[in-house]
C-alpha cells in the first residue's frame, strides 16, 4: 500500500515539476504581471487586435452601427469576431466574412469604421475621430 501510495504522490509532484521548470526559466518580471490583454502570452496577433478594439470601442456609442476594416481579409475576420464581444451593445455591419468580401446589406454604411493600422481608410463621407495605437477610428459624416 505504501509503495503504491508513493507512486501516486510521487507522480503528482513529478508532474508539477514540468510547469515549475517552465516558470523558473522565465525572467522574474515575466512570472507575475498584470496583462494588458487576455492574449498577452498566447497570441501576439490577437493581443494587438484586442487592444486596438478595446481602446477604439470607447468611440462607438451604444446602439451605433460599426464596421471593422483591415488590409487582409483574414485579419478582418478575427477583428470581426473579437469586436462582436467588445462592442456588445452596437450593431456590426461586416464588409467581409471568412475571407470573402460582402456587399454592404441594403447599401447601409456603418456609423463608425474601426480601421486596423489605418491600412484601408474609407473614402469620402467619413472623418477621422480617433487614432489608437497606430490604427484609426472614423465616423460617418452627415446625419446619423
Amino acid at each position: 500500500m505504501v509503495r503504491r501510495l508513493a507512486a501516486f504522490l510521487g507522480g503528482a509532484f513529478l508532474l508539477l515539476l514540468f510547469p515549475y521548470v517552465r516558470w523558473a526559466k522565465l525572467p522574474f518580471e515575466q512570472r507575475v504581471f498584470v496583462p494588458q490583454t487576455p492574449m498577452d502570452r498566447t497570441s501576439g496577433q490577437y493581443a494587438e487586435e484586442w487592444l486596438f478594439l478595446r481602446l477604439a470601442s470607447g468611440s462607438v456609442p451604444r446602439g451605433a452601427t460599426y464596421g471593422v476594416r483591415a488590409a487582409h481579409l483574414r485579419r478582418e475576420m478575427s477583428l470581426h469576431m473579437i469586436a462582436l464581444g467588445l462592442l456588445p451593445a452596437s450593431r456590426p455591419i461586416p464588409a467581409s466574412y471568412w475571407d470573402q468580401p460582402l456587399d454592404e446589406p441594403s447599401g447601409e454604411r456603418p456609423a463608425f469604421l474601426l480601421v486596423f493600422r489605418c491600412e484601408r481608410p474609407p473614402g469620402e463621407g467619413y472623418r477621422l475621430v480617433q487614432g489608437v495605437l497606430g490604427s484609426c477610428v472614423y465616423a460617418r459624416e452627415g446625419p446619423p
Binding site: 487576455p38 498566447t42 484586442w50
Partner: peptide
Amino acid sequence: HLSLSLATARATSVDFLFFWGV
C-alpha cells in the same frame, strides 16, 4: 499554478475571445 497562469494570460483560449465570451 493554474490560477497564476490564467491571471497572467498564459492559458487563455482564443475561443473565449471569438465566441464563448462573445
